[in-house]
């Protein structure tokens, strides 16, 4: 992958070396190493309490590490307060100042830098135009919808030209339609500006669709980092396999029985094919007869949970059209190619 070469050459936008942050007995961040490249859209993905937000707050300067080093463009930033760092944050709750107008909210960063009224109003108008909120300057944040507030927060963070933009679950409070729209816009904005975006989310779909690279967090550590395809196709642990999409996790013996190397492996539900009665097995595939435990309809696909005679429970996602006469209590034939199984480093 190119990423490795780039990491070695360029000065990373953000670098963590053995960073830890503990709150009493809770190890929120427990020895994290990572490099975020300039111009990269980097997603930190994990369940709540996995340490991803704390990592973001460590970059912003709201938290100080208990151990390790943090560099922003090669400069050590431990001990540096947030207002001396060239990074800006879009907060989960947007954190717009309720006593200021939208225009003054956006211009706040310029105001504290001593920029004059006329100039900062002009720049605020431009920043609002960039996020498609032209003419909203005199409104109050309370008069805006959730999506509009999100855009104001974005304009406010970008107006001071940060070197890295931090986004803390910025789409979490939006409804699905708006969220998908904002995903595209954020991605477009990031491309145009060429900035590093560090994006914290617990939504794996969001991370996969937007990021150049994804770091999967669990219990204060990064368990896997890589491009979305790599993280999805080759999960290193059971946790990644289960958290990023869904997966069947097989023990070494179960994997071997399906013709794969004797290693703990993951198997994506969509890699399991449904065989019609009487069809012969495709080359390199193992055919499994299984009793259907459950069927659930999910729009484009139907998820079939079935148990083989060897007591292996598999979940398959098959196109809804193929799954005509599938019913709970019936039987199915699955075909699994051995190369669809992905060996994992650990079953944990």
């Amino acid at each position: 992958m190119h990423a490795n070469i780039d990491t070695a050459l360029a000065i990373p936008a953000v670098r963590f070396a053995g960073v830890a942050r503990h709150f009493g007995a809770v190890k929120a961040v427990d020895g994290v190493d990572l490099s975020i490249l300039p111009g990269e859209f980097f997603a930190m993905l994990g369940p709540s309490g996995s340490g991803k937000t704390t990592c973001l707050r460590l970059i912003a300067g709201f938290e100080q590490p208990d151990a390790g080093h943090i560099e922003i463009f090669g400069e050590k930033v431990e001990g540096l307060p947030p207002y001396r760092r060239a990074v800006n944050t879009v907060f989960q709750d947007y954190a717009l100042f309720p006593h200021l107008s939208v225009g003054d909210n956006v211009a706040y960063g310029l105001r504290v830098r001593g920029v004059g009224r006329a100039e900062r109003d002009k720049q605020a108008r431009e920043a609002l135009a960039m996020v498609k909120l032209t003419g909203m300057e005199s409104r109050r944040p309370a008069q805006l919808s959730g999506g509009q507030r999100q855009r104001v927060a974005l304009a406010r963070a970008l107006i001071v030209r940060p070197k890295v933009l931090l986004l803390d679950e910025p789409l979490g409070a939006l409804d699905l339609k708006l969220r998908e729209e904002m995903q595209l816009e954020l991605k477009g904005l990031q491309r145009t500006l060429g900035l590093s975006f560090v994006f914290v989310t617990h939504d794996q779909g969001e991370a996969l669709s937007m990021a150049d690279r994804v770091a999967v967090f669990n219990e204060g550590r990064i368990v896997q980092v890589g491009p979305p395809e790599e993280v999805y196709e080759r999960p290193r642990t059971r946790f990644v396999a289960g958290f990023v999409g869904s997966a069947n996790v097989l023990s070494a013996a179960e994997a071997q029985a399906l013709g794969a190397p004797a290693r703990p492996s993951s198997l994506r539900p969509e890699k399991i094919a449904l065989m019609s009665a009487g069809a012969s097995a495709p080359r390199g595939a193992v055919v499994l007869d299984a009793a259907i435990v459950d069927v659930s309809y999910q729009g484009p696909v139907r998820r079939i949970t079935a148990r083989t005679p060897a007591r292996l429970v598999l979940v398959a996602a098959v196109p809804a059209g193929q799954a005509g006469e599938i019913e709970r209590g019936g039987r199915v034939r699955f075909a699994v190619r051995s190369d669809a199984l992905q060996p994992m480093e650990s079953e944990e």
Binding site: Y83, N88, Y108, G109
Partner: peptide
Amino acid sequence: PRSLIEAAGDLGA
């Protein structure tokens, strides 16, 4: 809210 105070610091105040 704490986030407002953090936002001000984040923006350079």
